[in-house]
């Protein structure tokens, strides 16, 4: 029999007395299960009700005449994109991709040493790996757009703030994925090298990097995909890229032009996604 007893199993299974005396404990565990279920449901529904009240969720508003007309008008205009506007958006589109590339590469390069510090099989000293991980987790709690809003306030409006936001974001993501990959590598070669007297640097260069490199590149590509999508909306907080133009068109109620931007952005994002997924599959 498989181990890992649940509380219920432990309550009924351990001593294995004859079956005839069995019913009592199982009835108990059934009752307990039922109360747990009930309590979970009550808490769950209670939280939902409080939330719906708290947010003034008015689903009728979603289907009210005003909302229908607004949505209908917007969607109607979006159905007819203004293709003549497309020629204006190639430059910001290129800028968007540039922001994503620069942010990804810088973030990924910065992530390497931190990932090495976080991996316990390379850095067995807890005094180093635990604070390193804490910093990483801290960085990862802040969403990319929030970084962008902050950097815009610090460095002013422009693509630089956006790139910096993506640097931080990529750093967190790549470092976490990479240190997990490093911890999962085959310890055999490392042991062999330690046995033959290699020092730490030699260990990393000849033992760790060859094993972890494909994963690292794969994660960088994945981060790049995420960053392209992020870069497309960074402009909403003033951090450059195509989002700035989209924001302007939405504010001036040019939904036909906004739609052009959205469609082209989606196509480019999808193309990059597919290309990157293809590359990743070849890497691993």
């Amino acid at each position: 029999m498989t181990p890992a007893p649940t509380p219920e199993a432990a309550a009924s299974g351990a001593p294995t007395p004859p079956p005839s005396k069995k019913p009592a404990p199982t009835i108990d565990s059934k009752g307990l299960q039922r109360y747990k279920m009930l309590a979970t449901w009550i808490i769950f529904i209670g939280v939902l009700v409080v939330c719906f009240v708290g947010v003034d969720a008015d689903f009728m508003a979603l289907f009210s005449d005003g909302a229908r007309q607004n949505m209908g008008r917007i969607l109607g205009e979006m159905m007819r994109p203004d293709w003549s506007y497309a020629s204006h958006i190639w430059k910001p589109m290129v800028e968007t991709v540039q922001i994503a590339i620069a942010g990804t590469i810088i973030g990924a390069v910065l992530a390497v040493p931190v990932a090495l510090l976080c991996a316990v099989n390379i850095m067995p000293k807890k005094i180093v790996s635990i604070p390193a991980r804490m910093v990483l987790n801290l960085v990862r709690t802040v969403p990319d757009l929030l970084f962008a809003a902050i950097f815009v306030a610090v460095f002013g409006i422009g693509a630089f703030a956006g790139m910096l936001a993506l640097v931080f974001f990529s750093f967190g993501l790549v470092a976490k994925l990479t240190y997990e990959a490093i911890e999962a590598i085959d310890p055999g070669p490392l042991e062999a090298m330690t046995a033959s007297g290699a020092n730490k640097i030699q260990l990393i260069v000849f033992g760790v990097i060859p094993q972890a490199l494909p994963y690292f590149f794969s994660y960088v590509l994945y981060t790049f995909e995420v960053n392209v999508r992020a870069a497309a909306v960074l402009g909403f907080v003033g951090a450059g890229g195509i989002g700035l133009h989209l924001d302007q068109q939405l504010n001036s109620l040019r939904y036909d032009r906004a739609s052009t931007i959205i469609v082209i952005t989606l196509v480019i994002v999808l193309l990059i996604d597919y290309a990157s997924t293809y590359l990743r599959r070849k890497l691993l």
Binding site: E8, S12, S29
Partner: peptide, 21 residues
């Protein structure tokens, strides 16, 4: 369940049982 002598396992998850059970 009583007929196949596993009445006492009624409230246990199936994946905790052996193949025969």
């Amino acid at each position: 369940l009583t007929r196949v002598n596993i009445r006492e396992k009624a409230y246990i998850r199936a994946d905790q049982l052996s193949g025969g059970q």
